[in-house]
Amino acid sequence: MVIDINNNFSSNASSASRNRATAPTTGKDTPAQAETIPAKSGKDQVVISEQAQGLRKLQTSIGNLPDVDSDRVNALRQAIAEGKFEINADRIAENMLNQDALLR
């Protein structure tokens, strides 16, 4: 094989290797089994899974929710002002432990 100064392979041995697509491997010496979708009119296509579409809808729904529940905040302010707000330390500790367990 001959290589010219522009790092292009000579046409006698390299045209076949340049036109040949390389297949990804799975760690073995065999090509990966990939699902191929025939492209229409030579354009690439992207297919988004149903799971990804569902996650996008959830993300949009969550994004549309208000950041603060104003009614709940007002009710808590009123309860604190009236001295009716009770702190349940056991419940707070239990929830903190549950959150910690989720992170493990």
Rank of each mutant, 00 (worst) to 15 (best):
M1V: 13
M1W: 10
I3G: 02
D4T: 03
D4C: 03
I5G: 05
N7A: 04
N7W: 03
N7H: 03
F9T: 09
S10E: 12
S11Q: 12
N12R: 14
A13Q: 12
A13R: 13
S15G: 08
S15W: 13
A16L: 13
S17G: 04
R18Q: 11
R18G: 14
N19I: 07
R20L: 10
R20G: 03
A21I: 07
T22W: 07
A23W: 08
T25I: 07
T26S: 14
K28L: 13
K28C: 09
D29E: 06
D29M: 09
T30W: 00
P31W: 02
P31S: 00
A32W: 07
A32Q: 15
Q33L: 13
E35F: 11
I37Q: 15
I37M: 13
I37L: 14
A39Q: 11
A39I: 08
K40E: 14
K40C: 05
S41F: 10
K43V: 03
K43R: 05
D44H: 13
V46L: 14
V46A: 12
V46N: 08
V47T: 11
I48D: 01
I48K: 01
S49L: 00
S49A: 02
S49C: 00
E50Y: 06
Q51Y: 11
Q51G: 06
Q53D: 09
Q53I: 07
R56M: 07
K57W: 06
Q59W: 06
Q59K: 07
T60F: 05
G63L: 03
N64T: 03
N64Y: 01
P66G: 02
P66K: 01
P66V: 01
D67M: 11
V68R: 00
D69Q: 00
D69S: 01
D71M: 00
D71I: 02
D71H: 02
R72Y: 12
R72A: 10
R72K: 14
V73A: 02
N74I: 01
N74Y: 02
L76N: 09
R77I: 10
I80C: 05
I80W: 04
K84W: 02
F85D: 07
I87T: 12
I87Q: 06
N88D: 10
A89D: 14
A89N: 08
D90G: 05
D90I: 00
I92G: 00
E94S: 09
E94H: 09
N95H: 08
M96G: 05
L97Q: 10
L97R: 11
N98D: 15
N98V: 12
N98Y: 11
Q99H: 11
D100L: 12
A101F: 03
L102V: 01
L103G: 03
R104L: 08
